[in-house]
């Protein structure tokens, strides 16, 4: 059976890389002030002919924003891949199972109490978010297992809805109590990579690297878990230990991402799903390709978010949800239909 051209075309690292770079260049180029590709190139190799304003915009505004968007997108997509593989559940992503909301509560608590943990300095924010993400995740899994041993797809999603509602009200409460101070949090909650600068990139980057490595060394385990824990155990996977490592890595990526950019929903659902259609379920290709396409997707989403109603900006979460929610509905519908 010959594969469709589109499938073969996108199932290629070089193609994915070219698309990613092109998108990044577009992301830098397009905005309230248009910047030609030549200026971008010039800035990168420090040619003096580039206008100072252009290089200023590129270096301190557009580039960090695009890079952050790319990293966040890649992180969320990989976390989605991990959750889906581990839970054997195509509906799982950091947002739908409530982990993003948990991380957001952590972040809001840091803002609310002006928390600074000793020795952590500004890393307090991502670390608290990560801890909250991990606790939420463990709670969701425990709850789902207690409710129903075989952890049906819908059960986990229902628990995710419950978590989202609960954490949402917690955040609203904190926002209400803080008065004006946390009003800005609402915009942040919808997700945004605007006006973050290099400091946020550097805040996020270490966790991104650790989390990514954590998942990349577990590609074979993710494949094994896709066939169920019993099968994984039977081929010699140390189930509990490996599962914890994978969950920890995914929480690291999710928690840190939420801490710097708010809750951007459905990236971890849309990207793994699309990528799976292209390359199949084998994590050997699924994970790296989701990385590249996830990053690309969020750079594009950010581009749309800031240009579609220019000069105003939409929260980036609006764009991702606009695409992700209908896909979620389709996947849910399909999984329910398969049962009856």
């Amino acid at each position: 059976m010959p594969k469709p051209f589109i499938q073969t075309f996108f199932n290629n690292y070089i193609v994915a890389l070219i698309i990613a770079i092109t998108t990044i260049l577009l992301g830098i180029s397009i905005g309230s002030q248009s910047i030609p590709f030549s200026s971008i190139w010039g800035t990168l190799i420090h040619t003096p002919t580039v206008p100072a304003t252009d290089s200023q915009i590129i270096v301190s505004i557009r580039l960090p924003r695009v890079v952050l968007a790319f990293l966040i997108g890649a992180a969320l997509a990989m976390a989605g891949v991990a959750f889906q593989g581990l839970l054997k559940n195509v509906l799982a992503d950091p947002y739908t199972i409530g982990v993003s909301s948990g991380a957001a509560v952590g972040a809001v608590i840091v803002f609310f109490f002006h928390l600074y943990l000793p020795f952590l300095g500004r890393f307090t924010l991502p670390i608290v978010s990560i801890i909250f993400a991990l606790i939420t995740l463990l709670f969701v899994l425990l709850f789902a297992r207690l409710a129903e041993r075989n952890m049906a797809m819908e059960t986990i999603v229902l628990i995710g809805i419950m978590m989202n509602a609960f954490f949402g009200s917690l955040i609203s409460l904190m926002v209400a109590l803080s008065g004006e101070e946390l009003r800005q949090v609402i915009g942040w909650l919808m997700g945004s990579v605007a006006m973050r600068g290099w400091s946020y990139v550097s805040l996020f980057f270490p966790f991104f690297v650790i989390g990514s490595i954590g998942l990349f060394v577990h590609i074979r385990e993710l494949n094994a878990f896709s066939f169920g824990e019993q099968a994984a155990a039977s081929i010699g996977v140390h189930v509990l230990q490996r599962k914890l490592f994978i969950l920890l890595s995914a929480s690291l990526l999710t928690g840190a991402a939420v801490a710097v950019s708010g809750t951007i929903g459905f990236v971890g659902l849309v990207i793994p799903h699309m990528t799976r259609l292209i390359c199949g379920a084998n994590h050997k290709r699924l994970l790296p390709l989701s990385f590249l396409y996830g990053g690309t997707f969020l750079v594009l989403a950010d581009l749309v978010a800031r240009t579609i109603v220019a000069p105003r900006e939409l929260p980036i979460g609006v764009i991702t949800s606009f695409i992700g929610a209908p896909l979620f509905a389709i996947l849910l519908f399909k999984s329910l239909r398969r049962k009856t």
Partner: peptide, 12 residues
């Protein structure tokens, strides 16, 4: 046998 969608025989 739990099968996982999207894997080929060889990958399994």
């Amino acid at each position: 046998t739990d099968i996982s969608f999207g894997y080929t025989v060889k990958e399994m």
